[in-house]
Design a protein around this nucleic acid. Sequence first.
DNA 1: TCCTCGGTTTGAAAGGTTTCAACGGAAACG
DNA 2: CGTTTCCGTTGAAACCTTTCAAACCGAGGA
Lengths: 337, 337
Amino acid sequence: MERASSVKDVAALAHVSLGTVSNVLNRPERVSPATRAKVEQAMRDLGFVRNESARQLRAGRSRTLAYVLLDARNPFFTDVAQGAELAAESAGLSLFLCHSDNRSSRERDYLAHLVEQRVQGILVTPVDPHASALEDVRRNGTPLVIVDRTRNDDRFCSVAVDDVLGGRLAVEHLVEAGHTRVAFIGGPDTIGQVRDRLAGAREAWAAAGLPEDQLVVVATDGLTVSEGRSAGERVMGIASSRRPSAAFCANDLLALGLLQQLSTAGLTVPGDLAIVGYDDIEYAAAAAVPLTSVRQPRQELGRRAAELVLDEAEDPDHQHQQVVFTPELVARRSTLG
Amino acid sequence: MERASSVKDVAALAHVSLGTVSNVLNRPERVSPATRAKVEQAMRDLGFVRNESARQLRAGRSRTLAYVLLDARNPFFTDVAQGAELAAESAGLSLFLCHSDNRSSRERDYLAHLVEQRVQGILVTPVDPHASALEDVRRNGTPLVIVDRTRNDDRFCSVAVDDVLGGRLAVEHLVEAGHTRVAFIGGPDTIGQVRDRLAGAREAWAAAGLPEDQLVVVATDGLTVSEGRSAGERVMGIASSRRPSAAFCANDLLALGLLQQLSTAGLTVPGDLAIVGYDDIEYAAAAAVPLTSVRQPRQELGRRAAELVLDEAEDPDHQHQQVVFTPELVARRSTLG
DNA sequence: TCCTCGGTTTGAAAGGTTTCAACGGAAACG
DNA sequence: CGTTTCCGTTGAAACCTTTCAAACCGAGGA
């Protein structure tokens, strides 16, 4: 595999100076048509490809953004990524996805690598929003936006969704439907989202004047389908006199697991138990019983995050912003009988 | 935001030459402990971060791999990605994911950008395995491995799964269960996978001596949940005397859509219709009726692809290989009554 | 005292691109 | 015919790191 050819080779072959080749690449209008044609032909002959490293070295900045995400298997994040991609694309940049897979060490490695690469900006949904790795990125001057997490700290931009409101919407919906005994399913409560959604649920519950102990918390160890199934078993184990008539799950995967567990056991949804999920992932609408869920503007989240990071990269007097989006309840058969 | 500091700044602050700083970075054992400490302190004081572009420019190669994938929402691909990540990680490289979202133009942009970046290697599940963009990458000396697609062309490495065999396994399973009228659901047949799976199905059907016209093809416009639902409507529209008793779907998303459509209509699975999916994604096992599916060694696919691309990058007399993995049928309730 | 040897440190060159001041030539102008 | 203007082109410098031959230094041996 012979060495890749450089502008110098192109210049030699086209009998022009190397500055001219660069002009053809970057300011073609300044070059006379004849010369341009000659140079372009030489490029084709040599199979010339710009060396982005050198370009970047000179320019001091790259033409890429990156999104470091928690869990590539969760459709929520891929939708966010898609929004970011659209924004990146319209700014003429490429977006690389980096999958931290919920591991801080991987996240740290990726962040370090991205900073070394001098990417134009980083979006991240961090394992821990208070990790010092985030500050390190900032210290090195790489713009960084926190996605779907918050940190009470105005040194970073962030975009998130109002989870307290989301919890409130879910429970208000159930209360309106007449439920007076409801389970909240979710955990662990180290996850800010889970805490906020529960807080919102409690607010709505209290506002409706219902007794506190009739909002039952069923704690899970994670937000997965299989955790949902095991939560389902626990709910069914509750004596029927005290069993809730509805459940609000901290995300859709839990809700899907729960739904599956119930139908395996021969119970019906929403007859025996109404279910509200959270995230409104594609599979929610496609479930055996379409799920009522709280929808977050996922693409919008990604798009906005990308815009903020670009603003930070380009505007010298950029102000950090904490953007909070509003969720919305989508009612489907799992609560509507 | 002041200019990022360089080795030169570090050298000045530590009162050593710039070659020494580089040695601390790359061959610390050659530097005396005292000097090393001095330099490391200076790096911390300045918040020095290596400039990867410059390093790369000098070294001629980068420390990243990339996987350009078709559909980040399909768990199949994210599992493949995970396998590739593991292999990359153990080789000390980072893996970037690029989402082409089934659009050739995006794929082309990403490939071009990656070649310009001189990444060490590219894995790609191409929109069209015969696209000339792939040859362009090769021409520029960047190793490239085709994942989950094939191209009868030994100028590329590829890793794939034997889809004909997979189709055969699925239909053999249904034949053994006594079905004599089966629907194949999938499309469009521009997708190689779909063609191969159907071909395998036909082979098995013929081998069992069953009449050709009792294997009904229900064509879809894509491999999504909603296509599955609409296929379900069409299957149910078939006069009951001629309606198949089982369906083999070209992937799990179709199967999930089909399943949902049937249960909405009050039909039971497998009683009224047995279903076999393909891919064995996580949601297959977690469906309302757990799906029988054909499992592909997804992580293994990614791992192997990454290994091949690294071999191509490092071994001067690398031989291109077409690796074909063997799928496996996982029987669950959707066919087992 | 001089030399040799080992381990450290140095300084310059190289890698490919972009930028920019300067240059040359031709056309337009006086 | 001489001067100005404008356009296209040139060549060198700069970006930051790594490498490598050469210089250096102190210690031990002759």
